[in-house]
Design a protein around this nucleic acid. Structure first.
Lengths: 195, 195
DNA sequence: GTCTATATCTTGATAGAC
DNA sequence: GTCTATCAAGATATAGAC
């Protein structure tokens, strides 16, 4: 399987289309024909770029994780405090959700884990590991610096915050009231203010 | 469409099977044939009980919501304090997740909202409305009684708590570390302790 | 209520020409 | 790299016998 950085311009558009379809309808909610129609080529041409659907999904996730890591680095470069970093982190999810209530690619695939090729599940796990580690680190530093309350261990705050954001997108879709991840996150952060 | 209380014993087993399949694989991850195999009858017999897949899913959700309301009433009857009620509420999600990492039916369908019949989406919305209202009420009483901190408005605590639990199941599936909703919820409740 | 048989469509995937 | 043609399998759904 090719690395996502080595694919052609057309393959890139295939990945773009697949990513959007996963965010809107899930892995089992779209077909190669849906992708073909969006890209503007025929179904067998999609197979030329990605032999199987699972392979396509793996590349979608790998690129998604890579871009997410870049954004985490940007946050580290632009935000000094832990609270600000956590708020900026929530904004990543908000930006995703603000486009037609798009779900996090890995939130959707995580929910569908029981119906996915094992290779896809493995890549999704990478996403959650990366995010859990980053959040734990940010919270740990924030607590040490006195910017965040020490009510809950960094590891557990990380789990809370990630679950909160993924869940807010799901609930936001289910209710159609669309509270959105940023709003829920900012409310939660109130509870982490040091005494 | 029949009400879920008026269906036959076989139809009940069809709903049982569909519920499990939705929790494991999502609406677009199972077929009438999957249901037929589990129940032990042929595919057209499923259609006899539920003309369309959407209709079947609607009944699954309606029964799920009904049972959930019963459990909420049981919590009200057995737990007096707000913290205890919120903990017992999290246990509902934990019990679901503890069976083969089953997702909340409406968490799964909420994620898949973009690929579902509108009738199904409507029923899912009922679930979230019921839960948001119940949680808001519990938190409101808890804050008034001084059992919960007033850092965040009851409405927003409700959104946080519901998102947290739905998200914990998704993340728990994605990571396979399986932290689980009860653990994440109990950690969060630490932040709601009054000063 | 359940079955066999069938219709119709869509799915992921392949063969082979251009 | 894209196409037409095609495949085998699986999808939802219906007709009609028992």
């Amino acid at each position: 399987m090719k690395h996502f950085s080595e694919i052609s311009a057309t393959a890139e558009r295939v990945v773009d289309a697949a990513e959007t379809l996963i965010q809107e309808r899930g892995y089992n909610g779209f077909s190669y024909d849906d992708v073909a129609r969006i890209v503007g080529i025929k179904k067998p041409s999609i197979h030329h770029h990605f032999a199987t659907k699972g392979e396509l999904a793996v590349v979608v996730v790998q690129r998604y994780v890579h871009r997410f890591k870049e954004k985490l680095l940007q946050i580290e470069g632009s935000q000094a405090g832990a609270s600000e970093r956590l708020l900026a982190y929530a904004t990543l999810f908000e930006q995703t959700f603000s486009v037609d209530q798009h779900l996090c690619v890995c939130g959707m695939l995580g929910a569908e884990a029981g119906a996915l090729p094992e290779l896809v599940n493995h890549e999704v796990q990478v996403f959650f590991d990366v995010n859990m580690n980053w959040l734990r680190q940010v919270v740990s530093e924030g607590q040490r610096a006195g910017q965040l309350a020490k009510t809950v261990e960094p590891q557990n705050v990380a789990a809370i915050y990630l679950s909160l954001l993924e869940g807010a997108m799901v609930v936001g879709r289910g209710t159609r009231q669309g509270v959105g991840p940023a709003s829920v996150a900012s409310q939660f952060l109130k509870t982490l203010k040091p005494a």
